[in-house]
Amino acid sequence: MLCREATRPLDGELMLDHAEALSRCANGDRAALKALFEAEAGRLIAVAERILRRRDVAEEVVQDAFIQIWRKADQYSADRGSARGWIYAVVRNRALNVLRDGRREDLADEADLTRLSETANLHDDRVLDRLDATSRLRQCLQQLDEAKRRSLLMAYMSGYTHGEIAGRMNVPLGTAKAWVRRGLSALRECMG
């Protein structure tokens, strides 16, 4: 328990009201954009890097994403769900577009074994330990069997395709697709 507390991901930036900052961005308040940058840029780069596996490309993606956030902040409203989630999605979408745009080969060049094994660690239960003990997502992921859980984590955290999941898990493509589909459907049900 103590260990879990120590690695809880939430810290100082909880003080920031992301929705309010976005609304100030929409009104042209650059200080609000800076506040978002200071609170989130470090973690956003890490999220992009998990997908792209290169720090420099991850920083480019975050840079472009912040400009996008600035320009389309008025598209966010409270009925769109979590403001913080919306911000992370802008970065994730940008990273995934870069990844899916055929730049993957450049990206793979520098992936060495150490980093690949670090990536592999993202997909096991150590990730779940970093989620809050009361997290509904954590409970629902724990209810999935390991193959489905790992498939979903590979897709979300590392941007793996169905084919890459199948390759990494050493199963036919159809099996990987079925794991993902059933895992997603079970999660939807579990999380309501």
Binding site: P9, V47, G81, Y88, R130, D132, L137, L153
Partner: peptide, 11 residues
């Protein structure tokens, strides 16, 4: 998006 967002915060 909201369902999975917590995973971002593990980075």
């Amino acid at each position: 998006r909201d369902r999975f967002h917590e995973l971002d915060l593990t980075a």
